Simulated scan of single mutants.
Amino acid sequence: MAQKVNGVVALAKGQPVSVETILVPDPGPAEAVVQVQACGVCHTDLHYREGGITDEFPFLLGHEAAGIVESVGEGVTDVAPGDFVVLNWRAVCGQCRACRKGRPQYCFDTHNARQKMTLADGTELSPALGIGAFAEKTLVAAGQCTKVDPAATPQVAGLLGCGVMAGLGAAINTGGVGRGDSIAVIGCGGVGDAAIAGATLAGATTIIAVDTDDRKLDWAREFGATHTVNARKTDAVEAIKEATGGFGADVVVDAVGRPETWKQAFFARDLAGTVVLVGVPTPDLVAPEIPLIEYFGRGGALKSSWYGDCLPSRDFPMLVDLYLQGRLPLERFVTEEIGLDDIETAFEKMHHGDVLRSVAVL
């Protein structure tokens, strides 16, 4: 029998979100109902509200979450009621060409719950990234539940569900940052600072944070940045070269996703260096015009990072363990704790760069 719970819904493009009564069905085969304990406010949710991802309104927002499995459907064996889980939007299929090649972190056919959650009048909801976690309970595919150590607080563990994993994975998984390497990170919001934290964890010795906001550069230092560059006051490419002996960084992460920052990243890397694009561009943006000889002459790699190229079943438990060991300061990403009624205000704070993460606690 469907349960009635409160959830944050974007009813129409560009309109403020509202708390609505939603119906959550009992889990079917390969599905789970999760009691959400905390969910971070991510830019992707704002993109959904603005119609920047699809136009399949209304949306049940929220996806960066942790909670307790309440019930599971037929055939579910990996998680059980009572398990503490982080929700993910990469429930790998095991059958697509990427999975068959042993690269499930690139799964091309990830899956979600088959049943739909609805408004009280029966209108079907589109859950953000197949999750919809700005709600007291949500229905997901069981593969979207990753069991982790319950000693971690939900406010912290849930951040691995999107932004922190995207940035940390961009540095470690996609960029391959290792001991003694240099890295520059352009854009020091939540994703960029996660890339800095990942580089610190991996043993990078020169970590250069680039932003146009001195507040964000101060945050970046807390996560391990050894150098900071305010790109409003200083040429970022020249500053990165100066900090790396004139050569450029081994890895440059663009956590903004604009043509100008991508061009900075391209020219700020060392020969045979790697550029990682993890900031999500809007559909209207195009790559900057760069002479083809520059691509050939510099070598290296230009990569996009999807969800930090993570495999949740591998990465989430490991990162929670590192947090519990005091080696990964996930708690520093939580700027404030809020309620479901505060999501619209949190969007404003995020848009103005006033927070790293607002986290809704249920």
Rank of each mutant, 00 (worst) to 15 (best):
A166H: 03
W89R: 01
G326T: 09
P29K: 15
V5R: 12
Y323F: 15
G297F: 11
A30Q: 14
K4R: 14
G163K: 02
M318Y: 14
V19Y: 07
A91F: 02
V320A: 07
F267I: 05
G163C: 13
G353T: 09
I240L: 12
L139N: 05
A231E: 06
G257A: 10
K216H: 14
I293C: 08
A128H: 00
T345Y: 05
G167R: 03
G167V: 06
F84Q: 09
D109I: 02
E31G: 01
T123R: 11
D250V: 05
A209D: 10
F247G: 04
T153E: 14
G190W: 00
P16L: 12
R49L: 15
L328E: 02
D270I: 05
R215W: 03
A243V: 06
D284L: 04
E337M: 10
H63E: 09
V320H: 03
F333P: 00
Y307A: 10
E136T: 10
A113D: 01
V286D: 13
A239S: 14
V72E: 01
L292G: 03
L330V: 06
V17R: 01
G180T: 12
G279M: 05
V5I: 13
S305H: 07
G178H: 12
I290F: 09
K147H: 08
I131L: 15
V41Y: 02
L125P: 04
E331P: 03
M1K: 14
A255K: 01
P317N: 08
L139P: 03
G163E: 05
Q144L: 04
V92D: 07
G169K: 01
G94D: 11
T146S: 11
G178W: 04
T146C: 13
A142R: 01
P317Y: 06
I183F: 08
Q155L: 09
R179A: 13
V156C: 01
L125D: 04
V17H: 03
V17P: 00
N173I: 09
V17G: 04
A287Q: 11
P104S: 12
P288K: 13
L61R: 02
I240N: 02
C107M: 09
P259N: 12
R327A: 13
F347L: 07
A195W: 02
I208W: 00
A66N: 10
L168F: 15
L271P: 00
I183K: 02
D181P: 03
V361K: 14
R90P: 01
V237K: 09
Q105G: 03
P25I: 10
V148C: 05
G300P: 11
V355L: 09
A120C: 05
A128D: 04
Y48A: 10
F134W: 11
E74K: 14
N230S: 09
S305F: 06
G245I: 13
K101E: 15
G297A: 14
V17S: 07
V9L: 04
I290S: 10
G161P: 04
L217Q: 11
K216Y: 06
V86S: 04
C107I: 07
P16V: 13
A265R: 00
A91L: 06
D315T: 08
A243R: 02
P312W: 01
V17W: 00
E31R: 00
H111D: 04
P81E: 11
F316T: 00
E20H: 15
Q3A: 14
D250G: 15
A10W: 00
T153R: 14
E222K: 14
A171I: 01
V19N: 08
V41L: 11
S305G: 09
Q15V: 07
